[in-house]
């Protein structure tokens, strides 16, 4: 059997580009260069520029592989210059999936902020795919302004799904916005799930992660039931280059999702 080179990016092309917000775009890749389970991530290569880690935002069961990405650094800036038909490379999948078996028969409480909704969408779609196994899915999502909400067209469709409950908030509203206004914690005052058994999954910017985790701990969620997406500098994706280490954990290999039980003794784990 040929040895697979873990550093080789599988060449593919961009099929479609879907603008989500002024700074966030969904890139749809051509074909299915890699398979993955919800929670795992991949390294995307912009040829000649370099690569960066992203978690797919599409369902693991979907035909297309999609990534919803915010323009923040060198690689993402180069990515935003690409057009449909342009070449791109993919390595992965890396990391551990969400333990979906452990979520069965339970209420699932998902909290997202900003572009952090991207991996949560993949998880959400995976849960919806087998929705009979789960008691109910709650999504609590916050964005800066109504303009910054990702998947604006999809959310109303998801709200129609049986056993799905979605609440949104924006930091600053505008004339068209009829929903809640305030940071994410304003829609976490009421926790409508059984905190003794429900898993809660969080992804968002570092400060949001910190305050949401505090709130969830206060609300009584068990430390080992609080699943947190860790954003770290990653290069190899396979636990060799050492960049993503948090305490004794390699986020690329042991994560990218760790539980609060894993990281609560680490000072400022989200930064």
């Amino acid at each position: 059997m040929a040895v697979i080179n873990p550093y080789y990016p599988i060449p593919t092309k961009i099929k479609e580009i879907i603008p989500e917000t002024p700074s966030i775009t969904t890139f749809v890749l051509d074909g299915r260069p890699i398979d993955f389970s919800a929670g795992q991530f991949a390294e995307l290569t912009v040829p000649g520029v370099g690569e960066a880690p992203f978690t797919p935002s599409s369902s693991p069961y979907a035909e297309d592989l999609e990534f919803t990405i915010m323009k923040v650094g060198r690689v993402t800036s180069a990515l935003f210059e690409l057009k449909p038909g342009d070449s791109i490379g993919v390595r992965g999948p890396f990391g551990k999936p969400y333990p979906l078996d452990a979520f069965k028969k339970k209420e699932i409480f998902i909290v997202g902020g900003g572009v952090g909704f991207a991996p949560l969408r993949s998880l959400f779609l995976a849960l919806v795919h087998n929705i009979k196994h789960y008691k109910k899915i709650y999504i609590r999502y916050g964005a800066r302004t109504p303009q910054d909400i990702v998947y604006k067209k999809l959310i109303p469709e998801w709200q129609k799904i049986d056993k799905v409950d979605i609440l949104l908030t924006v930091d600053r509203g505008d004339d068209s916005w009829k929903g809640k206004v305030g940071v994410i914690t304003v829609i976490l005052d009421e926790i409508p799930v059984n905190v003794n058994s429900a898993p809660t999954i969080v992804c968002g910017p570092p400060l949001m992660m910190k305050f949401v985790t505090q709130r969830l701990v206060e609300a009584g969620f068990k430390d080992e039931h609080i699943y947190l997406s860790m954003e770290k500098n990653m290069s190899c994706g396979i636990g060799k280059c050492n960049h993503c280490r948090v305490g004794k954990f390699y986020v690329c290999k042991d994560g990218p999702v760790l539980t609060w039980k894993d990281i609560k003794d680490i000072e400022e784990p989200f930064i």
């Binding site: 650094g73 570092p206 770290k232 948090v246």
Partner: peptide
């Protein structure tokens, strides 16, 4: 070394 794309540094 550990700085992420958004500029945060652990």
């Amino acid at each position: 070394y550990a700085r992420v794309g958004g500029g945060m540094n652990p």
